[in-house]
């Protein structure tokens, strides 16, 4: 095992030195980065423009209205924006934590235990990946209405906890990162299932769990359709749905573009902060895994 990785790494290094494709890969990546960053930078610039400047000054010329926009947004309906921000943090943070926990345990179980119906469950989950969450939103709404949970925090949290792709990811990761021999050694020492999971498997799976957490956090943070359908009470809206109420304000009210742009800018800051902090954690753990094997 160790030798094969070594030779593979050696090959990689040789390939890197030769650079058979020149700077093409770098250029493509740069183009991709530009493609992703251009809209973000537009939001950044547009959020600084005042109402009068937004549609009249040139696209990337910074405006003078950022502070007014921020003050207007904070004052809009007695600061409902901050409530939406907290709601979003609850949905994304709570949902991603619960989802990561469920995924890690399920993935570990599917990877390391042999039991009747294991393949059936796994195949069902794989099938679940193929069903887009958008398709499920309305049936889920009808089901939640029946059990009286529609229009509650749970109606947005619960459907996002079970996420087939994350379980799949956790299984793949557990297969690779948790050696059978280690579990065997633990069993010989008399550890039960719970102890093995907690003390042996989960610590090894942390980099994978961080990935799942980030994926789920971003997915829930950006989710629009599920909360839009589930929630009627505007005090429980997440940012996506809340900002949408500013945009679709009805035919006889102008859309509040300034506030929407400023709100959008503020709403991506936590995501960027999360990535910057989690990224570090991610890399050290990947390196740690390499050392152990």
């Amino acid at each position: 095992m160790a030798t094969t990785t070594l030779t593979a790494k050696g090959h990689l290094r040789v390939a890197a030195r030769r650079r058979p494709y020149g700077i093409a890969p770098t250029a493509i990546l740069l183009l991709g980065a530009l493609y992703c960053l251009l809209p973000v930078s537009w939001v950044l610039v547009a959020a600084t423009k005042s109402k009068a400047e937004l549609f009249s000054t040139s696209t990337f010329a910074p405006g003078t209205g950022l502070l007014t926009n921020l003050a207007d947004l904070a004052a809009y309906r007695d600061g409902v924006f901050w409530l939406w921000m907290l709601n979003t943090l609850l949905y994304a943070g709570g949902g991603a934590l619960l989802s990561t926990a469920v995924s890690a345990v399920s993935g570990y179980t599917l990877a390391k235990y042999r039991f009747r119906g294991r393949n059936l469950i796994f195949n069902l989950l794989i099938g679940g990946i193929l069903v887009p969450a958008v398709v499920l939103a309305i049936p889920q709404y009808l089901l939640f209405s029946r059990i009286g949970l529609a229009d509650t925090y749970w109606s947005v949290l619960l459907p996002q906890i079970l996420h087939p792709y994350s379980i799949y990811l956790a299984r793949i990761y557990a297969t690779a990162a948790v050696p059978d021999a280690l579990l065997e050694a633990g069993r010989i020492d008399g550890a039960g299932h719970w102890l093995l999971l907690r003390r042996v498997a989960l610590p090894l799976m942390i980099p994978g769990m961080v990935t799942i957490f980030l994926f789920q956090f971003v997915a829930i943070w950006n989710n629009f359709l599920l909360p839009f359908i589930m929630l009627g009470d505007d005090q429980m809206f997440p940012l996506t749905v809340g900002l949408y109420t500013l945009l679709a304000a009805g035919a006889n009210q102008p859309s509040l573009y300034n506030l929407i742009l400023t709100g959008t800018l503020l709403s991506i800051i936590p995501l960027i902060a999360l990535f910057l902090t989690m990224q570090r954690y991610w890399r050290t753990d990947l390196a740690g895994g390499g050392l152990k094997s």
């Binding site: 839009f228 945009l247 679709a248 009805g250």
Partner: peptide, 17 residues
């Protein structure tokens, strides 16, 4: 009062509810 997004989507949402 629960402030909603206006327009066609609001109608669809009400019909679903």
């Amino acid at each position: 009062v629960s402030k909603q997004a206006g327009g066609d989507d609001a109608a669809a949402k009400f019909l679903t509810a």
